[in-house]
């Protein structure tokens, strides 16, 4: 059965995922049995009782109470088993333990923003220590999104105006993909995130210095990575085409007309200010909907983004 489980289901990231998969395979077995039973009966009857010439039916029996009771009661018992088992696992999935690492999740049109208890913020990615339960307290700022991590088998809608919570106990180190599962507009399919499960020391190291992969990376390359992972790509294009925000193409070093009519030279300070206080200077014919990245980006990451924008000629 494991080969079928590996085909049907993604890798298991948590103990709950294993529990869920056992339940899942139980229903697969049940479904396969009943489907094969029905198909076998249909094929056999069609072949065995095919009409030869103008032959009448062999019997006109119209009901058999015992048989009808059997094929009502047995399915009822089976579905009640499925209900009870499903309810038991559901309570495990949705009742968080007390001592969990609590992370605030805010979903907004097309990016995930996370905030750790110590105030550190990240966008579209989180690092969690292995073996310690994590509890996500989620809310949305605009429409309904849904926090879905297939390898943890967990999903819950992120509803505006309301807090919903979700928890998981990571047990497999590595990278797990986060999807948005509730349709939320143009960027619904781009609203992906990453959950990195690290060992205890790697997690502490990450908390101080940030991702070691990015520390050694040249600034412009890191900027390109951040352009994607921090969600800049959903509003700023690189090819000059207009989206919610102005395109980066050919911006650096040129005059920019602002909404209040004045024009300003797009130098490093302007780019930095636009990242950290976007409402200060808004390009004309655009709305001031860009969120501030103050506290969301380390100093090195801001420099990297500036270098990246500089390269977009």
């Amino acid at each position: 059965m494991n080969w079928l489980k590996s085909i049907l289901l993604p890798a298991q990231g948590t103990a709950y995922a294993a529990e869920h998969d056992t339940f899942f395979m139980f229903i697969v077995a049940l479904t396969a049995f009943f489907f094969l039973l029905i198909t076998a009966l249909v094929v056999f009857f069609v072949w065995r009782y095919r009409r030869r010439g103008d032959s009448p039916a062999e019997s006109q029996v119209t009901h058999n109470t015992r048989l009808e009771i059997v094929w009502s009661v047995i399915p009822l018992i089976l579905v009640m088993i499925i209900f009870a088992w499903g309810f038991h696992d559901y309570m495990n999935a949705y009742t968080a333990p007390g001592d969990a690492l609590e992370i605030q999740v805010t979903a907004k049109q097309w990016i995930w923003q996370f905030e750790y208890p110590d105030g550190m913020r990240t966008v579209n990615e989180i690092h969690v220590p292995i073996g310690r339960p994590v509890r996500l307290v989620m809310s949305s700022e605009d429409v309904i999104h849904s926090f879905f991590v297939p390898s943890f088998r967990i999903k819950k809608d992120v509803v505006p105006g309301m807090y919903t919570d979700l928890w998981f106990l990571p047990e497999a180190e590595g990278e797990h993909t986060l999807f948005c599962a509730e349709y939320c507009g143009r960027g619904h399919s781009d609203m992906l995130g990453k959950i990195y499960v690290d060992s205890e020391e790697k997690f502490r190291e990450w908390q101080e210095l940030g991702d070691e992969r990015t520390r050694t990376m040249p600034l412009a390359e890191l900027g390109a990575l951040l352009y994607e992972s921090r969600g800049c790509s959903t509003c700023h294009s690189l090819d000059g085409s207009r989206r919610d925000g102005p395109s980066f193409k050919g911006v650096f070093g040129h005059e920019v007309k602002l909404s209040d009519g004045t024009t300003v030279l797009a130098d490093e300070n302007y780019i930095r200010e636009s990242i950290l206080e976007p409402q200060a200077k808004i390009v004309s014919s655009f709305e001031g909907i860009m969120p501030t990245f103050q506290g969301l980006l380390r100093e090195r990451e801001v420099k990297a983004l500036i270098e990246f924008v500089k390269e977009q000629q």
Binding site: H20, T31, F87
Partner: peptide, 14 residues
């Protein structure tokens, strides 16, 4: 049946 059961629906919904 998968979608009616609570636990599997968490994974399979949407």
């Amino acid at each position: 049946l998968f979608l009616g059961a609570l636990a599997t629906d968490i994974h399979l919904h949407d």
